[in-house]
Design a protein around this nucleic acid. Sequence first.
DNA 1: TGAACATATGAACAATTGCTCATATCTTGA
DNA 2: TCAAGATATGAGCAATTGTTCATATGTTCA
Lengths: 108, 108
Amino acid sequence: MDNSLALSRIKETITRNGELFDSLAQLYKIFADSSRVKILVALTQSEMCVSEISEFLSITQSAVSHQLRILKSSNLVKTRRDGKNIVYSLTDNHVRTIIDCGMEHVTE
Amino acid sequence: MDNSLALSRIKETITRNGELFDSLAQLYKIFADSSRVKILVALTQSEMCVSEISEFLSITQSAVSHQLRILKSSNLVKTRRDGKNIVYSLTDNHVRTIIDCGMEHVTE
DNA sequence: TGAACATATGAACAATTGCTCATATCTTGA
DNA sequence: TCAAGATATGAGCAATTGTTCATATGTTCA
């Protein structure tokens, strides 16, 4: 059974869409940290300001801010100001979907 | 509007299922590398041996082996021997689903 | 306006990661 | 059995990452 034709077709697909898979890896990199995942999971339940997140994650306010910056620059979360607070929320439902999808595998 | 009740409920959920979200992040960590993603994508199309993967990814055989070891120890891929070759394939369809799910977001 | 609060940011550091190089292990066929 | 081929593995290294500490920025209210 000679599958070299199939193989070169696959190679073609991978090389042609190289940057696409790079961005895919880049996306997963954002979910690849425990703090960020927990932040995102929390935000699927409710919008939330920095100090609230910091409180229930038991990590520094600074650490939370740094992580939120990553999430925001990736357009996974958005912000609005409410007095002294900055309230963070999910940009859209993609985050929810991606988390659910991973959960499916983890909780099997 | 007082949402402190909702917040403490969320905090409860996060802390109670801490290890679960840790494993979730751990899972995404595996997808968080360009080479590994490409390997997994290729394997969604066809089983493949190390030298084949190494060839079309244009990375060292050693590098591929190292990555495959990670994928295998995470139970995302399985192996069988075919003569001198070790043939790698996906363990189940979860990988496909997870990749599709991420693609959905990347290609929006 | 100024003190107190909330958030953001930059530097520094330890930990992790992905690669390369060298070499070991395992299999086949002469 | 032994040389050649295919894969695995360990050490070493440069790059990246997540955190903390110190401090800056921005907002409210007395």
